[in-house]
Nucleic acid binder design. Structure first.
Lengths: 229, 229
DNA sequence: GCAAAAGTGTTGAACTTACACCCATGT
DNA sequence: ACATGGGTGTAAGTTCAACACTTTTGC
């Protein structure tokens, strides 16, 4: 039974993670300052190699946990990179994932011990191999996908204000929205639960905090509802 | 330089193609009746293994050409499947592509010599391994993507009528559209060139033929236009 | 002449957009 | 008291969905 595939070549299989975060001001990316070979000293995405005992999703989760301490994170495969010389040291196929994490929940000790730093999405340094392409592709995908799926809430704290949510969509789409209209659109979906607390950092008046109601969203989806920003 | 990655395992890397076509009535998929092991006798997607000398896009193009004789086809990677036991014969990672082809241009001799047959998308038989999941995933993606990108024209002959275009979108989305409104929406985009010919098979009156103007589309995109059905 | 599909026109409802305006509060 | 960002209201413009209607032709 195991003889059919003998003549075909085998490849090293890597995983790279494009990790997005939002600090309530800017969209950020978590990058590694490499103190290991190859390309020691440069910046890169967090990555690793696939093991015999796991699938790619599991490997991506393992790698992300190692860096951030976070489990149960929004993590999605988006492309597999396979240029023959993408990695000059060896033929490596790399499957890329993007992760959306809540910065405030990540483990600072872990990220620091890996030499990881947050970069503004508009100020990404030169990265190794094809990692800059991976970042661009991932950003394009979340920009498009965030319009039709409630991805945004993965990047915000559990409790957030409407202006914070608006700011997030503005930095993702690199546009300005009218605050009155943005609010109306979001509210008309009935997906947010208003809390009795206010957030007072951002303004003198303070803004009410809300939570995303995932159960309600799942129910609405069943009945044909389309999320759209 | 080549010693860094030594301890990591290597994997067989396959490519599988979900090949869509439209016969002006139904959305179809090109499947192989396997007369080879493993799983001889069952149906599967067309696939193959990655070579040392090529990347995945090139491999997918090669495999598609072998089956259909077609070059320069709309072909896009959409997911990499890596379950540990997805192929019981060996650990194989498979990157899946979907192709949109014009049935009338494919090489019948080639497809027949590979034992390939067209199946209605709603009547797909049981396929080997995880190929049924691949088909479902690919269909979901083209359904979504065809709303915002002019994918449909890849499936139609060079010259087509508005009712044919409408029928295509109806079978992709499994809905019925109002013909007056569909026509208005398409026409308002100014992307079709009306020809002086009529198509007389489909009806007594006959319908005018049109061509998709790719150059105009590219120009409009530059200036911020959004295609949407 | 009638059935059937191609193609046009009209209308009210729904949704967007722009913008004026009020509210609460720290300084 | 006033500047600042939070939050509400409204009117005009645009798009959308439903459907009535006309056209052409093979039988």
């Amino acid at each position: 039974m195991s003889g059919f595939y003998q003549p075909h070549p085998r490849f090293l299989q890597a995983i790279d993670c494009v990790i997005f975060g939002f600090d309530l001001e800017k969209l950020k990316l978590l990058l590694i300052h490499r103190d290991f070979e190859p390309q020691k000293g440069k910046y890169s995405l967090m990555g690793g190699f696939l093991k015999e005992s796991e699938n790619l999703d599991e490997a991506a989760g393992r790698i992300l946990e190692k860096l951030t301490g976070l489990d149960n994170v929004y993590l999605e495969q988006f492309n597999t990179y396979s240029e023959v010389n993408r990695d000059p040291a060896a033929r490596v196929i790399s499957t890329a994932y993007y992760a959306l994490i809540k910065i405030d929940e990540s483990d600072r000790d872990k990220t620091q011990s890996h030499g990881a730093e947050w970069f503004d999405i508009n100020e990404i340094p030169e990265l190794i191999f094809d990692h800059n392409s991976m970042v661009e592709n991932a950003f394009d995908i979340i920009r498009h996908k965030s319009k039709f799926y409630p991805l945004g809430f993965e990047l915000l704290p559990e409790k957030f204000t409407i202006p914070q949510l608006q700011k997030l969509y503005e930095v993702i789409n690199q546009v300005k929205f009218d605050n009155a209209n943005f609010r109306k659109k979001i509210m008309s979906m009935n997906l947010l639960v208003k809390l009795d607390e206010k957030e007072k950092e951002g303004s003198k008046k303070g803004a009410f905090l809300y939570q995303f109601d995932k159960e309600k969203y799942d129910k609405l989806i069943q009945s044909g509802f389309l999320f759209e920003i």
